[in-house]
Amino acid sequence: MRNGIYILTLTVLFNINLIAQSSFGFRYELYNLNYHISSNSVNNESSDYNEVFPFSFYLSLSHQFDNKFTITVRPGILLAWGLSQYNGLELSLCAKYNISDNFYALVGLNLHDNWYKIAHSNTKYPEEGLFQLFLVGGGFKLLNVASVELQFLYPFKKHFGNYFNNYFNPIDMNYIIKLGVGLEWEL
């Protein structure tokens, strides 16, 4: 599955580069991870947590079909190191719809390859594997090359790690909210 994603990414990158009205850029995204820890210890209660993490970078490759529709592919990496058990390579496949000259809506799929070793320690047991998240959002264009974007990501598979304090306490993702800025230039 993972190899398939890498091949798909390379194929899309290759094809986009061959098509006119394509653009290339990079993005930085600040993300808020909302998760739930189900406590198996009498000393702690189950509850939801919100953490903001500052490190996710992406390349972006887009192809504009007409004035309204654009497809965009964003391979990148999301890292929180030991601060969270959600770390790994990502690939977003999105369709953008231009609502006006400056605003656009976004819908797509985010694929996340969660890593184990980067965050594992005595209290952290991440779940290794591929996660799919439904992505919806909107953005605002600044000048011709920049944009500010807000995304909401909802996971199809929620369980991404375990908090261990003598007992395994499952950690499930509720959602991710991302605030990103991007620069993109026509090829």
Partner: peptide, 30 residues
């Protein structure tokens, strides 16, 4: 296992030669 579970003064516990806690400042559950 938890800062809510400190029994180091309990008669059954206070004789222990070693006490340990894991990653107390780094816990994911805030």
């Amino acid at each position: 296992d938890s800062k809510n579970n400190i029994w180091v003064t309990h008669p059954a516990i206070r004789d222990f030669s070693l006490h340990y806690t894991d990653e107390p400042l780094d816990r994911e559950q805030s």
